[in-house]
């Protein structure tokens, strides 16, 4: 720690502070303004445009969306997909990674290559689309949001490297004492691997929560729209808005097109904001480990 920082050093440091502050505001403003703009009346939004602080505070948009069943259905779909999907992904990814990490498994490098190749070359959207919609007939089912994206080769290699870094002597001494593979995995390896598996789980969970492309391709049933896809739909058409405000009979009522869209967006992000400190810690840690290991 230098005691006498030169003037130019301090100016530079000050510049850094300012730049970081500006970039942070840049990151925050879109989110903030959407929240603020959702908390006004539609009339105010039309008149004043988007704002950083609600002019004419109003919870109308939120009241409307919470009275209608759509948001609950979408929340249900997204929650189910995230919980079930993450569980399945974690189980099967861990299972495969573990096998690939055990040195005495003779074909593990062959299997690793088999998986690695899928990262290099893909069959393309058309083929996948036909496979899933025509041959597997998964359209308009909730499983189409879970199964096709269930495993990630990338996450699998991350976990494999983690398992491989666990000291072999632990497993070896257990083997000498007569333990079989299952015992070693469940009673010895898994308990110490829980943080790593949880991190991978969070990576998957975020992917499931934010998923919308698969819904766009394969889901037409309104009751099965996940949250992110709902947002996309309401950006482009007014059915939802009309449905949500269909039975309002106030005089001078302006259908709350924009505020409802904004409110829905805010409600969608809600869980991420609440869980954010938790998410951030694990993601950063997972990324660092992954980066350092390559």
């Amino acid at each position: 720690m230098s005691i006498n920082e030169s003037l130019s050093d301090r100016i530079l440091k000050g510049f850094f502070y300012a730049a970081i502050l500006l970039f942070s505001i840049y990151c925050l403003i879109p989110f903030w303004s959407v929240v603020a703009s959702s908390l006004t009346s539609e009339a105010s939004l039309v008149k004043n445009g988007y704002m950083i602080w609600p002019i004419d505070f109003s919870l109308d948009a939120y009241k409307l969306i919470f009275r209608d069943s759509t948001i609950y259905k979408s929340y249900g779909v997204t929650t189910f997909v995230t919980v079930v999907g993450t569980a399945l992904s974690m189980i099967f990814t861990s299972a495969m990674s573990y096998t690939l990490s055990v040195k005495s498994v003779k074909y593990r490098n062959h299997m690793a290559f088999y998986i690695y190749f899928t990262m290099l070359f893909q069959g393309g959207l058309v083929a996948s689309y036909l496979l899933i919609s025509k041959y597997l007939d998964m359209k308009d089912t909730i499983w189409v949001l879970i199964v096709p994206g269930m495993l990630s080769a990338w996450n699998m290699f991350l976990l494999r490297n983690f398992f491989a870094s666990i000291d072999e002597s632990i497993a070896e001494s257990a083997k000498i004492d007569g333990a079989n593979d299952a015992y070693i995995l469940f009673k010895i390896i898994l308990p110490i691997s829980l943080p790593a598996i949880a991190t991978i789980g969070l990576f998957y969970a975020l992917g499931y929560w934010n998923k919308w492309f698969d819904a766009m391709l394969y889901i037409n049933n309104k009751d099965l729209f996940p949250l992110q896809y709902l947002i996309q739909r309401i950006m482009n058409n007014l059915d939802y808005i009309n449905q949500v405000s269909a039975d309002v009979t106030l005089p001078n009522f302006i259908p709350p097109a924009m505020t409802v869209r904004l409110a829905t967006t805010v409600v969608t992000i809600g869980p991420i904001v609440f869980l954010y400190p938790f998410l951030q810690k694990y993601f950063v840690k997972g990324l660092m480990v992954g980066a350092v290991k390559g």
Binding site: C27, K211, Q228, Y229, Q232, Y276
Partner: peptide
């Protein structure tokens, strides 16, 4: 600064 990464692009489109 890390927060935007967690938002899906459909949400960002609103922004």
């Amino acid at each position: 600064m890390i927060f935007p990464h967690f938002l899906s692009w459909t949400v960002v489109a609103m922004f």
